[in-house]
Simulated assay, not measured.
Amino acid sequence: MSSSVTPLDYPYPLDLRHLFRCGWLSGVTVESADQEFRVHSLLLSLLSEVFAESDEDNFQLKEDHPRIVEVVMRFIYQMNYDDVVEKSGFSKVKFHIKLYLIATKYCIEKLWIFVEDNLKSIIQEGVLKDGFSDAIDEYYNRGCDDDGAHRHLFVEASDLNFQGLKDRDDFLDVVQRTPDFVFDLILEFRKRLPWG
């Protein structure tokens, strides 16, 4: 008799979260910098073009932050991630930007739509909190593949709250390191000019 865990060890109805925890019948391994996830290729392929087009059965995601990789793996099985935002160690806005960036990187459309639905309010809510400048840096300097589709969210929030941001060291640091953000901010300021 086998001692491995099977879905029969859990009460019915079977929940995909149980499959994630036990890894029963998983055929793919996803490795982060500090964890290994046994996942189901069907679920991975249904949610990501990148994984669907690959014949690999082991994916190395070690360049991505391990907590964010874990959230992605959990999202595949539960279509939610609310329970881990606080435990991630990131500010709420930086967490969502990191999650959005990895979702676009691996073409996990359901995840990026889920994040996108909340992004505007999260950025506006977090603009004067720690982590906002880090999120700008992350979005602008990490090489997001969304063609800058959400730059306006950072720019508009910065413009509306500029008086509160202009004396913050973290904001001034990101301004010095991120010329594209400065350019976008200047264009936003220009809209208020009589000839803008």
Rank of each mutant, 00 (worst) to 15 (best):
E188M: 11
K105F: 06
I122C: 00
D130Q: 09
M73L: 07
R177Q: 13
E116S: 15
E70V: 10
I186W: 12
I68M: 11
R192M: 13
I113G: 08
F114H: 13
Y100W: 12
A103H: 01
V155N: 03
D173K: 12
E125C: 02
K94G: 01
M73R: 09
I123V: 13
S91K: 08
N118K: 15
S121L: 01
R168Y: 09
D82V: 08
F132W: 02
T104M: 01
E156F: 03
F75C: 07
G164Q: 04
V182K: 03
V71N: 05
L61T: 06
I186L: 14
L187R: 12
G148A: 02
K120D: 11
Y106L: 07
T104V: 10
L160G: 14
H152Y: 13
K92R: 14
T178Y: 02
P179M: 03
G143Q: 00
E70D: 15
E125D: 13
D184S: 08
S88C: 10
F183K: 15
K129C: 02
S91W: 06
R142D: 01
R192T: 15
E109Q: 11
R177N: 09
L187A: 10
P194I: 06
S121I: 04
D64R: 09
I97T: 10
P179A: 01
S158H: 07
F181C: 05
F171W: 11
T104C: 06
Y81F: 14
S158K: 09
K87A: 13
V71E: 05
N118I: 10
E188Q: 15
V85W: 06
E86A: 14
V93T: 07
E70A: 15
I113M: 12
A135H: 02
H65V: 10
D130Y: 02
D146I: 01
Q163C: 06
S158Q: 05
R190T: 10
F95V: 06
F114I: 00
G131D: 01
L61A: 05
N161V: 03
H96G: 04
M73T: 08
F75D: 04
L119G: 05
L160V: 11
D134R: 01
I122R: 00
I186R: 12
R67T: 15
D147H: 11
K120T: 07
E138M: 02
F171G: 07
D145R: 14
R192Q: 15
E86R: 13
K62Q: 15
D169I: 10
D169P: 00
Q176P: 00
P194H: 05
I123W: 01
I68H: 11
D180W: 02
E156G: 01
F132R: 00
P194Q: 07
G164T: 04
D147Q: 11
E116W: 07
V71A: 13
L111V: 05
V155P: 05
F59P: 03
Y77A: 11
F59M: 03
I122F: 00
F189C: 02
R190M: 11
